[in-house]
Nucleic acid binder design. Structure first.
Length: 422
RNA sequence: GCGAGUAUGGUGAAGUGGUUAACACGGCGGAUUGUGGUUCCGUUAUGCAAGGGUUCGAUCCCCUUUACUCGCCCCA
C-alpha cells in the first residue's frame, strides 16, 4: 500500500470542516484589519533562504527541502513565509508605489525536513502577517493584537502573551557580547547542548530546558538591561499600546527567537495546556528591521508573526472547542426506484443551483436504508419521488424536525424550501 | 543526527507456543414489498506490518527491515 510521505497528513471529515472554518475566519479578520493578501511561490531559489543570516545559517540549510530543477538551478521549498513576502516586496518595488505602511497577510503550506512529532510536520500550514514601512510601536502592538484576537475569536482560553525587546542592532550586539562574557566562566556547569549554543546561538541558552532552574540562569543579564534610549522608548510605547487594547502580557526576557534578524519587539503567544510540552507556543514573531536590506531592498522596517495551523488545531482539541456549528443538509431526495432517479437527479441539480445543499441516493437503496442515510446526513427535509409523484408532478416532502409531511407541486419546491428552511 | 515505545479486520480493540483469533462500533440485507432514527436476526471476500530464525508447531519468543507514535536536537 502506498502511504503518505513521512511528516505529512491528509485532511478530510471533521478536520476539514474545522480548517475551512478557521480559514474563513482569518480571511474575514484580515479584511477588518485592512491587510492585503499575498501569495508567493511554494519554492524559491535556495539563496533566498540560505542567505547569510549569521550564526544560525547552518541550521537553516540543514532543515529545508532542497532540490535541483531540470535547469540545474538550486531550489528550496519554502520553510517559512517571511522571506518570500519580503523578496516579493523588494522585487515588485512595492515600497515605491503603495501607501505606507504595507500591511500583508499570507496563508499556506511550508516545508521543513525535520523529524515529525506531536504537532510538528514536514508539510505544515502557517498563517502570518508582515507589515513593512513603519517603525511605530503601534504596528508592533497591532500585529500582536491580531494574533491574540484570532485565539480569542476561536474561543481559546488561557492564552499568554510573552513580549521582549532585543533592541536595535547596536543594543543587540552589546547584549550578545555581555551574555557570552557572563557565561564564559561558567561553561562547565552548563549542559552539553548549551555548550554548543554558546558558540552557535548564545541567546538560546536562556531557553534551555535543562539548565533553566540553575542559579546562573536567574542571574544572567537580560536584553532589557542593554537597550539604548531609542530602543527603551520603543519598548515602553509597545507596552502602552498593548494596554490600550486590553491585552495582558508578560515581559519575558527569555524570549529571544531563533533568528538573528530580529530587532526590538519579539513575542510569543503561549497556550497553557497541561502535557502540551513544547507545543505550547502557538505563534511567534517580532520586528525585523534590516531584513529587507539583507534581501537587497532599501532600508525599510518590517514586523510580523506567523502561527502554525497544526498547533492551533491541537490546542482547540485539547480545550474541547468545536467550531463546526451547522453542517446540516437542507434536503435529501429519495427515488422510490431507479425509474425515478433521472427526475431526482435533475431536481437535485436545480435545488443546488438555487442555494440548497442537496443530496440524493446514488446506491439504489431501499426506502428504509434511505431514511437512515438521510438521518446520518442530518437532513432538514426528506423528499420522496415515486411513480405516483411523477404522475401528478408532485413531490412528497417531510420536515424532519416536525415530522409533518406535505405533497407539493415540484415546480413550487424552491418556494417551499425558501419558506421553511430557516 | 540521538533515544524510547507500538504494529491484530472498514474502525476501536481483547487474546494465546497447539484444531473455528473474543467483544464492540460501523456497513449491507431482512423481520407486513411507500416512511427511518429503538429492538431482534443474518451478513461483512482465510485478517495478526514484511523478511528471516528458534521450535514438531509461531499472531505470540529472537533478529533485521519498514511504518507509525512520543521525546531530545532544532524550531525561521
Amino acid at each position: 500500500m502506498i502511504q503518505k510521505p513521512k511528516g505529512t497528513y491528509d485532511v478530510f471529515g471533521e478536520k476539514g470542516k474545522t480548517i475551512l472554518y478557521i480559514e474563513e475566519l482569518l480571511k474575514a479578520l484580515m479584511k477588518q484589519y485592512n491587510y492585503e493578501y499575498f501569495r508567493t511561490p511554494l519554492f524559491e531559489v535556495s539563496e533566498l533562504f540560505h542567505r547569510g543570516v549569521g550564526s544560525t545559517t547552518d541550521i537553516v540549510t540543514k532543515e529545508t527541502y532542497d532540490f535541483k530543477d531540470r535547469g540545474n538551478r538550486d531550489m528550496t521549498l519554502r520553510p517559512e513565509g517571511t522571506a518570500g513576502i519580503t523578496r516579493s516586496f523588494v522585487e515588485n518595488k512595492i515600497y515605491g508605489n503603495a501607501s505606507q505602511p504595507v500591511k500583508t497577510w499570507y496563508y499556506g503550506p511550508m516545508y521543513r525536513y525535520e523529524r515529525p512529532q506531536s504537532g510538528r510536520f514536514r508539510e505544515f500550514y502557517q498563517f502570518g502577517v508582515e507589515v513593512f514601512g513603519s517603525d511605530s510601536a503601534s504596528i508592533d502592538a497591532e500585529v500582536i493584537s491580531i494574533a491574540v484576537n484570532i485565539y480569542r475569536l476561536l474561543g481559546l482560553k488561557g492564552i499568554k502573551v510573552n513580549i521582549n525587546s532585543l533592541g536595535d542592532t547596536e543594543s543587540r550586539d552589546n547584549y550578545r557580547k555581555a551574555l557570552k562574557e557572563y557565561f564564559r566562566p561558567h561553561l562547565n556547569t552548563l549542559c552539553e547542548d548549551c555548550k554548543q549554543r554558546f558558540d552557535k546561538n548564545p541567546l538560546r541558552i536562556l531557553d534551555c530546558k535543562i539548565d533553566s532552574n540553575k542559579e546562573i540562569m536567574k542571574q544572567a543579564p537580560t536584553t532589557i538591561d542593554y537597550l539604548n534610549e531609542y530602543s527603551k522608548k520603543h519598548f515602553e510605547d509597545l507596552q502602552k499600546y498593548l494596554k490600550s487594547l486590553n491585552i495582558e502580557f508578560i515581559v519575558n526576557p527569555k524570549i529571544v527567537r531563533g533568528l538573528d534578524y530580529y530587532t526590538h519587539t519579539v513575542f510569543e503567544v503561549e497556550a497553557s495546556i497541561k502535557d502540551f510540552g513544547s507545543q505550547n507556543v502557538l505563534c511567534g514573531g517580532g520586528r525585523y528591521n534590516g531584513l529587507i536590506e539583507q534581501i537587497g531592498g532599501p532600508s525599510i522596517n518590517g514586523v510580523g508573526f506567523a502561527l502554525g495551523l497544526e498547533r492551533l488545531l491541537a490546542a482547540l482539541e485539547s480545550e474541547n472547542i468545536n467550531l463546526i456549528k451547522d453542517d446540516n443538509l437542507d434536503i435529501y431526495i429519495i427515488p422510490m426506484s431507479e425509474n425515478e432517479l433521472e427526475k431526482v437527479f435533475s431536481l437535485a441539480n436545480h435545488l443546488r443551483l438555487n442555494g440548497f445543499s442537496t443530496d440524493i441516493d446514488y446506491m439504489n437503496r431501499n426506502l428504509k436504508s434511505n431514511f437512515k442515510q438521510a438521518d446520518r446526513l442530518k437532513s432538514k427535509f426528506i423528499a420522496i419521488i415515486g411513480e405516483e409523484e411523477i404522475k401528478n408532478n408532485k413531490i412528497t416532502i417531510k420536515n424532519n424536525n416536525t415530522k409533518e409531511e406535505y405533497k407539493i407541486d415540484i415546480d413550487k419546491i424552491i418556494d417551499f424550501l425558501d419558506q421553511n428552511c430557516n
